[in-house]
Nucleic acid binder design. Structure first.
Lengths: 104, 104
DNA sequence: ATACTAATATCGTATATACGATATTGGAGT
DNA sequence: ACTCCAATATCGTATATACGATATTAGTAT
């Protein structure tokens, strides 16, 4: 996960958040993102992100039935998610009203 | 502003949002982003964004005293912001609780 | 008018996120 | 065992956002 000042880390952030709620595979993530955004991210988008988060030690593969590989957060991933969430809130603190209005 | 499926449009989104609340110059935007994120985006980050939003017709230069150039949203920019806000809320609808908790 | 300075603008470079296309892999079913 | 398919993985390419360095510009002050 990036530490610098740019805005590019959001896909990793979303993936960490989704996995923190429920252990998920690449395909499940693609489905969930389709629900949220209307379009399904291509395999070339999601699998490199999972690879990078895995190599960074933020998520860990768990064996599941079938050929799916599910991932769960590691301790380090939980910590990273807390940090990223705080940053997100600092940047977007004033989106609270809109989120309430649009999404109830 | 981008229409596709990626996550990269957030700096433009934030800039549109800030300008929608108050006409702002590049320096004022840098200051506000510093407040929110802790680091001030470099000139090489913010001015190209303003240029691109201006060329896209989303913001418009207004003459101010001094050498500052302030920008205001155009009608097209207002519309774009509404669309982008809805998308943002669809993606991050479940951040509502965190935003409430962290930022009150 | 000239020098100074803050704001703006541009340049080269780096990287995360994106895509579509293609390759690989591992269970399922025959 | 072999084929098939869905899930995963990789490749080449494109673009927005990032930086630091440098250049330009327009008021300010001397």
């Amino acid at each position: 996960m990036r530490e610098s000042c740019d805005m590019r880390g959001f896909l990793s952030f979303i993936v960490l958040r989704l996995i923190s709620k429920k252990n998920m595979s690449g395909e499940e993530l693609r489905e969930e993102l389709k629900k949220r955004k209307g379009t399904k991210p291509s395999p070339g988008t999601i699998y490199p992100v999972l690879k990078s988060l895995n190599e960074g030690g933020f998520i860990k593969e768990i064996k599941d039935s079938g050929k799916e590989k599910k991932y769960k957060l590691t301790k380090s991933g939980q910590k990273e998610l807390r940090i990223a969430t705080r940053k997100f809130c600092e940047i977007f603190y004033d989106m609270k009203d809109e989120l309430g209005r649009h999404c109830d």
